[in-house]
Simulated scan of single mutants.
Amino acid sequence: MRDDNDPGTLDLITGGLILGYARVSTDDQDLTQQRDQLHLAGCNKLFAEKVSGARRVRPELDRMLDHLRPGDVVTVTRLDRLARSTRDLLDISERIRGCGAGLRSLAEPWADTTSPAGRMVMTVFAGIAEFERSLILERTRTGREAAKARGVKFGPRPTLTKAQVEHARRLVDQDGFTVKAAAELLGVHRSTLYRALDKAMGCA
């Protein structure tokens, strides 16, 4: 819950709170630099976490999005701290917009959705993402045929074999597939593949 008695820094354009989000991927990394940059940008309230951007669940990000009110501005040092892909960025940006809030990146000033130019750029990105999706669908069909030739089995089974998990990791790490597209290729739910990949990383 936000404390309206301690509003923090207000954005001069929107009149809302300037909220910062910081993220690093591992416990060995430090959030200090991001925190300092966000404080200098006027963020008195920060949401920070140490979690891989590939993980579907990011508690502090969800908490920040639930905290948003009209006029607030979400600020990040770089867009890759917020999103793991163009599609992910657009989805998060849409959630922010749906709250009547804006998005601002310190390293990418063109991504400021509180300005008309920034909103136009995000619209262009949405078109690019749709184009990327069409390419992924085509690569998915090609990948399925190649996987079948290598003996990979497909089907709606709730579990994945080691070979399927390794194949999925190649698709994501080397071939540019999203986890969702790789899951569709293997015939499982996205969350099933996330769990399998996380488990494989833990055993590595």
Rank of each mutant, 00 (worst) to 15 (best):
G143E: 13
D112V: 06
P59H: 07
A129T: 05
T75Q: 07
G118E: 03
A54E: 12
T142K: 11
R55N: 15
R81N: 05
T140F: 00
V121M: 14
E138G: 08
L103H: 08
V51H: 11
D88T: 02
M122H: 10
A41Y: 01
R119H: 03
L103C: 04
E108D: 12
A129I: 03
A129M: 04
R35C: 03
C43T: 06
R84Y: 04
R56N: 08
M120Q: 12
S93E: 14
R141K: 15
Q33L: 13
G118K: 01
T32N: 12
I136W: 07
C43I: 08
A54V: 05
A48L: 02
N44M: 08
T114C: 08
E145Y: 03
R139S: 13
I136R: 15
R56D: 09
G100C: 10
A41P: 10
R56M: 13
A83H: 07
R63I: 00
D36M: 09
E145I: 11
Q34C: 01
T26H: 08
V51D: 07
G118F: 10
D30R: 12
L137V: 03
T113K: 10
G71F: 01
G127D: 09
S115N: 05
S134Y: 04
R97V: 01
D30I: 05
M122K: 09
L65W: 01
S85G: 09
G118A: 09
P109F: 03
E138C: 03
E138N: 11
S93I: 00
L46H: 12
V74I: 11
A126N: 02
D112M: 09
L65S: 07
E130K: 12
L38C: 02
D88Y: 04
A117G: 13
D30N: 15
V121D: 00
D27H: 08
R23V: 06
G98S: 09
R69P: 03
M122I: 11
A117R: 14
S93G: 14
R133E: 15
S115K: 14
V76H: 04
L103N: 05
P70N: 07
R144P: 02
P116K: 00
E49K: 03
G71H: 08
E145F: 04
V24D: 01
A129S: 13
F47P: 10
P116G: 00
A107R: 10
D30G: 02
A129E: 06
